[in-house]
Amino acid sequence: MSDVILELKDLHTHFFTDGGEVPAVDGVSFKLHKGEVVGIVGESGCGKSVTSLSIMQLVPNPPGKIVRGEINFKDDNLVNFREKRMKQIRGNEIAMIFQEPMTSLNPVYTIGNQLVEAIRMHRKLSKNEARAKAIEMLQLVGIPRSDEVIDEYPHQLSGGMRQRVMIAMAMSCDPEVLIADEPTTALDVTIQAQILDLMRKLNQEQDTAILLITHDLGVVAEMCDRVVVMYSGQVVEEGTVREILKDPKHPYTKGLIRSLPKIHEKEQKLYSIPGTVAKPTMDATGCRFAPRCEFAFDRCFKENPELYQLANERSSRCFLYDNEERGVEEHVQTDSRG
């Protein structure tokens, strides 16, 4: 498709720690189209943040480093960019907001100071024009008394307000892509809904493509067009929201969906996938999910499954979708229905 704005191709980001090399992002590929909202889901530690920081070229180095792969943004591969050109991309064409609104703003400068810096970094505006633009942005993200808030310090605002400021800052140069790394995880439920509403509004009105990182399938259901499911540094399933929620293919995705609380359920106890996320290691053999997978069979412990394409932008990293194993898949299908 021609309207792809961001494409990751076989991205590998590793950490070189005292305990050895950690392939935190281990061959991740996906596409983001213009104006689209794509969710990246997966349990904590599966490599979502490292993936998003890799796109921004902000992985702490040392210990982290992109060792292989491409990050194609429009016509360029960002991996080849030097810091100087990357600076022109960050905040200007690709902006990012983070999980921790309480600590993401510099405590010793006013909101206005930090917003004006972001605006003047990429736009040739005078201080006064930038300030006017900053106030306008604060209004846009629904901050009341924005002409006063602009001269306040972060500690004078609530967490929800600070996240709005972060969004205002990220949107101030009309980026084409907004990466939101768990933007609502640290906020309480009502504030969370407001922030998501705001992001949806920005997506629709400004046509900004959003890469929404979350571990919450509820947020995904509400916000996203397509979903990429990650497990232990790898993409394990990809599809539209409808496909993923109604017809998950990968046993891990099935588990995630089963563990969602359901309103009409009689059963009180929530399902949770047994075991814990496997930490990515360099010498892993077999399917990363095998130790926790109820469908695992011999082959799963010996070979690492590839990402089997099921349809266009619909895939699953599981041997059950290998043509050779077709028989087994039918078995699984009946099994999960019954």
Binding site: E83, K87, F98, A118
Partner: peptide, 18 residues
């Protein structure tokens, strides 16, 4: 330098000096 707000500053495209 490890703090979240420094990451924010870098994410908005500010240079090393700033």
């Amino acid at each position: 330098m490890k703090s979240d707000y420094i990451r924010t500053v870098r994410a908005k495209g500010s240079g090393q000096f700033l």
